[in-house]
Amino acid sequence: MKQSYSFCTDDRLCINSWGNEITEVTGMPSSAVLGMKYYEVLPRILADDRDALSVALADKTPMNLKGYSFNCLHDRVKADVRIDPVRVSSGKVDELRIEIRPYSACSMARKLQNSQRLIDIGKIASTLAHGVRNPLNAIKGSVVYLREKYSNEQTLIEFTRIMEEEITRLDNFISKFLSTSISVAGLSESDVNALLKKIEIYTSLQTHANDISADYEYGDIPLVAIDSFQLEQAVLNVINNAIEAMGAGGHLSVKTMTQKVSDNDFVLIEISDTGPGMADNGLGDISPETRGRGFGLFITREILQYYGGFLEIKSKKGAGTTVRLYLRVSR
């Protein structure tokens, strides 16, 4: 079924009703267009070189325009247009209802809609970052207390050291995020194996609590130029997804190696699980609109692409999932 966009005008062709759908596709809210001539907002609709709405007003009869061609930013879109006189009093039409059913969406409009969604995500992320800082400081204080109180517990000391370090890094990341943007990061030569060994330690509590076995195989790999905090988040998104997807008795496998792709050298992080798997390799779930695990994979993909890498997913229903993170090797 075709998507339809509708609005109404009075007998002066001024917009007096503006639907939610047409607001979304044009990016113009009703408050901005009410009272304006429709052709000041949209391309004028013509029938035999005459304004089609004026014709419908004069004839007091519905009008159908099949395959009408609209200009849409940098291309043209065909649509069916129906114009209905919806209120007639004293032999005069007081209102017209116009419904537009495009055959396909304008490609630029789709890009603008996706951009708006990302802008909205950015606004939410900024609000979330502000909200995280206060409880983060409280957690840091608690960690310091535990470290000092149980200073003889070596295992606990190791975990609290990692926790305090990660809290500090997260606080610094939030500060940078609020003052600039997520893409303005601290680029440095990062040791992927060292980062994964740290992740192995503090995800061991999760895997143990869920009765999941895990093994990490560290290959001989070079350094990569990437912000270590963002890389850590990219990897954790995938590992946490894997842990959440598996039940008791599941197995997590993480490997690092080098691989050449199209004559370019990459460090490959391969993360496999024995969970239920995903349909269509899970690629359809990677979107800024998706919540939960799909959104985490979207963030991971965006981080990799920003640094010249890419994400690959191999999954099958009932046969687990393998996610490969490709990081371009520093030259």
Score class of each variant (00 low, 15 high):
D94P: 00
N193C: 12
D75W: 05
R12C: 07
V144M: 05
F229C: 05
K149A: 11
N241C: 09
V143D: 01
G249E: 09
P276N: 07
R133L: 13
L170W: 03
A32I: 08
Y5G: 00
R293M: 14
N137K: 15
T321N: 05
K140H: 08
V132N: 05
N20P: 07
Y326R: 02
V144H: 03
R291I: 15
R147A: 15
I201T: 14
Q230T: 06
D75M: 12
L268G: 02
V267Q: 01
G91H: 03
E244V: 12
G277H: 07
G27F: 05
Y5C: 01
G284E: 13
V25P: 00
I45Y: 01
R87L: 14
A129M: 15
T160Y: 02
I167Y: 01
P102N: 04
K111W: 10
P102E: 05
R76Q: 13
S142N: 10
Y39F: 15
V93D: 02
D211H: 14
L53S: 03
T290Q: 12
E99Y: 02
V41H: 00
G309T: 04
G131N: 14
G292Y: 06
D227L: 06
L195H: 03
K111M: 14
K176F: 06
R331S: 12
D280Q: 11
N71D: 12
I243R: 05
K314V: 12
Y218T: 06
T61M: 14
E153G: 03
P102H: 02
F159V: 04
I239S: 00
F310S: 03
V192K: 01
Y150E: 11
G275N: 02
Y150A: 11
A209T: 13
D211W: 10
Y216Q: 02
V224G: 02
P85N: 08
I286Y: 00
L146H: 02
G294S: 08
F229L: 06
T61D: 10
L118H: 05
E158G: 15
S190C: 14
E21C: 06
R328C: 07
D75L: 09
G186I: 10
K314N: 15
H251T: 07
I199G: 03
Q154A: 12
N237M: 08
T274Y: 03
T9H: 02
D80V: 10
E21P: 04
R169T: 11
V55Y: 01
R133F: 09
N237D: 09
D51M: 09
S30C: 07
N281Y: 07
S30K: 05
S188V: 13
A248C: 07
K197D: 08
I162F: 00
T26L: 07
I124E: 11
S204I: 09
K176R: 15
G294Q: 05
N134E: 12
L34F: 02
D80F: 03
A52P: 00
M28R: 10
S107Y: 08
Q259G: 06
C106K: 00
D49R: 12
T155V: 11
A47S: 10
Y202D: 04
L325E: 03
W18L: 01
M163C: 14
M278H: 06
M36H: 09
V238N: 01
